[in-house]
Simulated assay, not measured.
Amino acid sequence: SRPPSEEGHSVDELCPNVRIHEGVNVSNIMEVPFVVSIQRRISPNLFAHFCGGALIRPHWVISAKHCFQQQRSIDSYRIVGGTIDSEDTKAESSEIADILYPDEQSGSHDIALLRLKSPLTIAQREDFQQLKLASDVAANKYHSCHCFAAGWGVDSLDSGQPMRYLKRARLSMKFPKKCYEEHLYHTGNFPLYEDPSLYHCFERGEGEDRGVTMEGDSGSPVYCHVTDGTGRVDAVLYGPVSFGYYPEDANGVTIMADKMTYTSNPQIHADWIRKNMKQ
């Protein structure tokens, strides 16, 4: 059973209309219409998935900064949306017009804001579920419900190849202080970030659709359903996938199922994101 909220209601009572999907396959892109595949050119007429992103407006995508650190030409990338098939030749796509990064004076920020050359029209549909930032909802009235990551990452560490079809995994959010303690342990007290508020972290969730993020899921959105208990459900972005850790057992064997996923907190950059999207 799920823990009660501070008001004494269980998460399932507060989220009666959140659809729970068995398994991890996404059968229809409208279940997660904001998930896009970021692809890079591997030959003159061929692209391949390498990172994910969150479509937050027809011309704008949020992803991870580290996805674009190989100093490739901006015209070597494209964004593919509106499909669960990363190899769908008929899927809508757009080139990237600009890649923006926030000011890093206050620490490490693994966030990139991508401006598209042409809009992805799926975001203009009336039934498009728009991802919101935490400040877009009344935090004192809403309750975090079910959290998920969705992407085309590899199916196993051995395969090395992104999956063709989109999958979704249920995750469980951990407290920022606990996240930071885990991070210090895995980095030998040499953290990639020093402010616990910069990142959220998640572990494998509960249920048949639980899972973890893998290579190729970088930049993919982690989002949580929130509701005020009246039946209205919103999807709130808790950041693009940034990095993760695989714990080991006493014999040094990697425990795949217990991977920790860290996401760069977009709420810190909410004003910067909104300002750039208005320009």
Score class of each variant (00 low, 15 high):
Arg2Glu: 00
Ser5Lys: 04
Glu6Cys: 14
Glu6Asn: 07
Asp12Gly: 06
Asp12Ser: 13
Cys15Val: 02
Ile20Phe: 12
His21Val: 13
Gly23Ser: 13
Val24Gly: 14
Asn25Val: 11
Asn25Ala: 06
Asn25Ser: 08
Val26Arg: 06
Val26Asp: 07
Ser27Met: 05
Asn28Asp: 15
Val36His: 08
Gln39Ala: 01
Arg40Ile: 11
Arg41Gly: 00
Leu46Glu: 05
Ala48Asn: 13
His49Gln: 15
Phe50Asn: 03
Gly53Thr: 09
Gly53Met: 01
Pro58Ala: 10
Gln69Ser: 10
Gln70Cys: 00
Gln71Leu: 07
Arg72Ala: 07
Arg72His: 09
Ser73Ile: 10
Ser73Leu: 15
Ile74Glu: 07
Ile79Val: 15
Thr83Cys: 09
Ile84Asp: 04
Ser86Glu: 11
Asp88Trp: 14
Thr89Glu: 11
Thr89Asn: 08
Ala91Tyr: 00
Glu92Pro: 00
Glu92Phe: 12
Asp98Gln: 13
Asp98Ser: 06
Leu100Lys: 05
Leu100Ala: 07
Glu104Lys: 14
Gly107Tyr: 01
Leu113Gln: 02
Leu114Phe: 03
Arg115Gly: 07
Arg115Phe: 07
Leu120Phe: 13
Thr121Trp: 10
Arg125Leu: 10
Phe128Val: 14
Val137Gly: 00
Ala138His: 10
Ala138Gly: 08
Ala139Tyr: 11
Ala139Pro: 05
Asn140Leu: 13
Lys141Met: 09
Lys141His: 12
Tyr142Thr: 02
Cys145Arg: 06
His146Pro: 03
His146Gly: 06
Cys147Ser: 13
Ala150Pro: 04
Ala150Trp: 00
Gly151Ile: 10
Gly153Asn: 06
Val154His: 08
Pro162Lys: 00
Met163Arg: 01
Arg164Phe: 05
Arg164Trp: 06
Leu166Met: 05
Arg168Gln: 02
Arg170Leu: 00
Lys177Trp: 03
Lys177Val: 04
Tyr180Gly: 09
His186Met: 12
Thr187Pro: 01
Gly188Lys: 02
Leu198Tyr: 05
Tyr199Lys: 04
Tyr199Gln: 02
Glu203Thr: 15
Glu208His: 08
Glu208Cys: 08
Arg210Cys: 08
Gly211Lys: 14
Gly211Asn: 07
Ser218Gly: 01
Gly219Gln: 11
Tyr223Phe: 15
Cys224Leu: 09
His225Phe: 15
Gly229Ser: 04
Thr230Pro: 12
Val233Ser: 09
Ala235His: 03
Leu237Asn: 02
Tyr238Lys: 05
Phe243Ile: 07
Phe243Trp: 08
Tyr246Ser: 06
Tyr246Thr: 12
Tyr246Arg: 12
Gly252Ser: 08
Ala257Met: 09
Ala257Trp: 14
Asp258Trp: 09
Lys259Val: 08
Met260Thr: 15
Met260Asp: 03
Tyr262Ile: 11
Asn265Cys: 11
Asn265Phe: 04
Pro266Trp: 02
Ile268Cys: 06
His269Pro: 05
His269Ile: 03
Trp272Leu: 03
Asn276Pro: 04
Asn276Ile: 09
Met277Asp: 02
Lys278Leu: 14
